[in-house]
Amino acid sequence: MTPLVIESTDLTPKICFRPDKKEFEISGESRPENVRKFYEPVMDWIDNYKDHLHANKAKGSEKLVFKFKFEYFNSTSAKFLTSIINKLDTIKQEVMPVEIEWYYDAPDEDMKNSGEEFSKMVSIPFRFFSVN
């Protein structure tokens, strides 16, 4: 499976999905001018990865850990993050265990709250990490 790596800009986060290294991370700020254009390839990649896992009969004993390390995301990005997390939830239900690690700057309670809101919408376990 080809990795997906998109470098960050002032408006968009870094995407680093490297299945060979078991690295799945989104980090930075997200307020793209065209949110759909930015996130659609990310969502397509996750769909393809789910098919790849199915085809390769991924073992249920393994676990995928997706790391979310946002400094900020706007409300429009939140809609697409919801879609991404829902897709991960489908992988968890159909293929193999998935866990989300949600990182936030120590004083940024709003970012932690946002993660908690996402966690209420899916069955994926979230682990929260405060970063100083």
Partner: peptide, 14 residues
Amino acid sequence: VSDVTVKEYNTDLA
């Protein structure tokens, strides 16, 4: 945020 009928910017959500 989970309303799939609204695809892009949503003032209600903002």
